[in-house]
Design a protein around this nucleic acid. Structure first.
Lengths: 338, 338
DNA sequence: GGCTAGCGGTTAAGCGGTTTGCTACCCACC
DNA sequence: GGTGGGTAGCAAACCGCTTAACCGCTAGCC
């Protein structure tokens, strides 16, 4: 690989001048610039990013940190990563993937290596040691998700209030008056700190209260079999239920088939709405599930933008909350008798 | 952040000696080593990976290159990336994610930056310009998947011969004599070069020939609706079919529901076997699909091992082919009348 | 008339490590 | 006591780039 020195020699200038041309950091006369560019083209010069990083103290590498094994990231997880990587590439950055534990030590270690200019943190908990570690490290970062009180910390997240409110409005307008909400549930205690679950539950309670409905919530583990069981349970204990809202991507199809197996017709007798999910997931069910689609790719892109914004000295970015959007499928219909 | 110079001063030694201790590259007396280690601990020293990379001409960064937007990587895609990143971390490497087009120029460009020591290439086509570019760049790489003739190129891949053969054996032993094979199909021409599809089709033809069966193959786009249509088509045109083998993760549930909607009982009248897929995907269907599980995580891990092996001067690694393993669900049963 | 502020460019000092000689020293041995 | 060999540690030359500081000169300013 040709170096700047090679280019400089060939163009008969100093290596600094080459640098100024490459980075466009100082005016250079047209004639010189031309000679340098010709030399670069002839030699196939590409500047070495490692040397550049060392000298400029900016690596132009970002990290995407996500908790390994802690939470199942389905296809949506890939959406985060690929969209983030794409955006980073567009803006001249690289993205490294850091599977880290939920403890802070590992993350601090990685940060200390000095490889990255900033971190995008996924799957943030309401109280999260990793966030504290990042704050302490003074390294710029952005969250996808947010802590309990994220004021002052750059983040993007799903707007659970709006999403749940929109979902309830939709079902309510269809005439449903007894709506059950199936959420993610796990034996692990950290799950109580999982923002999406907590925020969606609160929003559901509020929405039900405002409409004078009873807020029936059921936790369900993240697999189809649990979903089937949950459906049976709801039907048995709350036979008046006419709609089920689900925020549990891996259980949704189970809830559907559980209901069908119990002899319930979907959507005639029972409406199902899967929220915070992907289109693919909904399309896989039969009938196709009505969903509120999670803006996964937008979040990845925005997270990176938020981070790069800080790095490039743009004014402190606004946090962004994006709602999921309704995409009706075949699993929702007016409440029976309407 | 403390530098080696700081540590050296504090321990009263030269910076070179610190380096020898940190890397364990030259014998150092116990007393000196102790002083240095103490100094490092007091200062919280971590060596700067960028400086190290520049000096040693090894960045200890690997790239995972996958074609952006070209092919739907579902949850399995995430499995590749996370398992690869985890393995890389275990062995002291970082993993960057490179969404690249299927053209070689973009990849050559990235390689030329000198950021990575090697590349793991995903979704390799039978003839693949990216592979040529990597060979030309003389940078070590490993493929997940393989070209038409991958001899001499380090790779790991699914063993489609064994997988399809095992699947056919399983169905054959259940008494099925008319088996249809649903594969991935797309308008795009590059799909003809997609190794998994081509290899699986060949294996299917061979297996059918050996057993004296007719090899019925149907292409299907990668979504559930197409799967439903395909199921109807098979039932209409080949009413004797008693088993459908599917290698099309996104259409599998559609094939199932298409069959059911047509009044076919699964598995009593018709067996369904989804191959090269994930457990999650199969579990989402009702009945739970019998699958041949894709060794996605193993492939990611092995790919990284293969690459690091080369980097660390281990003898030329053996290519590895892993079969998918049968995980019977509720969608397969003896052929009707058996 | 002295001051500063650009010209387009060079020089050189880093950035924080790795690595190659080389020195100084100790010990054993004839 | 000279010699040889082995060891611990050091100095210094990089790795390939960025970025002050500054070159000699001219132009604009009060």
């Amino acid at each position: 690989m040709a170096t700047m020195r090679d280019v400089a020699e060939r163009a008969g200038v100093s290596i600094a001048t080459v640098s100024f041309v490459v980075n466009n950091t100082k005016p250079v006369s047209a004639a010189t610039r031309e000679r340098i560019e010709a030399a670069m083209a002839e030699l196939g010069f590409q500047r070495n990013v490692v040397a550049r990083a060392l000298a400029s103290r900016r690596t132009r590498i970002l990290a995407m940190a996500y908790p390994a094994l802690e939470h199942r990231l389905g296809a949506a997880g890939m959406g985060f990563v690929t969209s983030a990587a794409r955006r980073a590439a567009e803006r001249g950055y690289h993205l490294v993937v850091w599977p880290v534990g939920n403890d802070a030590a590992e993350l601090s270690d990685l940060v200390g290596q000095g490889l990255v200019d900033g971190v995008v943190l996924m799957e943030v908990l309401l109280r999260d040691a990793r966030v504290d570690a990042l704050v302490a490290s003074r390294l710029p970062f952005a969250m996808i998700g947010r802590t309990e009180n994220p004021a002052g910390l750059p983040h993007v997240d799903i707007d659970f209030d709006v999403t749940v409110e929109d979902a309830l409005t939709y079902l309510h307008q269809l005439g449903h008056r007894e709506v059950a909400f199936v959420t993610e549930g796990e034996p692990r205690a950290t799950f109580r700190l999982y923002g999406p679950k907590v925020r969606a539950e609160r929003a559901f309670e509020r929405g039900c209260a405002e409409r004078g409905l009873e807020a029936l919530m059921v936790e369900c583990e993240q697999h189809a079999a649990a979903g089937r069981e949950t459906a049976r349970e709801i039907l048995a204990r709350h036979p008046g239920t006419t709609a089920i809202m689900i925020m549990n991507e891996h259980a949704a199809s189970g809830v559907l088939s559980g209901a069908i197996r119990s002899g319930v017709r979907v959507p005639d007798d029972m409406s199902l709405l899967s929220i915070v999910t992907t289109r693919d997931m909904g399309a896989m069910a039969d009938p196709v599930l009505s969903i509120m689609r999670s803006p996964g790719e937008e979040l990845g892109t925005l997270g990176v933008d938020l981070l790069i914004g800080q790095l490039e000295g743009e004014p402190m970015p606004e946090p962004r909350l994006l709602p999921c959007v309704l995409e009706p499928g075949e699993s929702t219909a007016p409440a029976p008798g309407r």
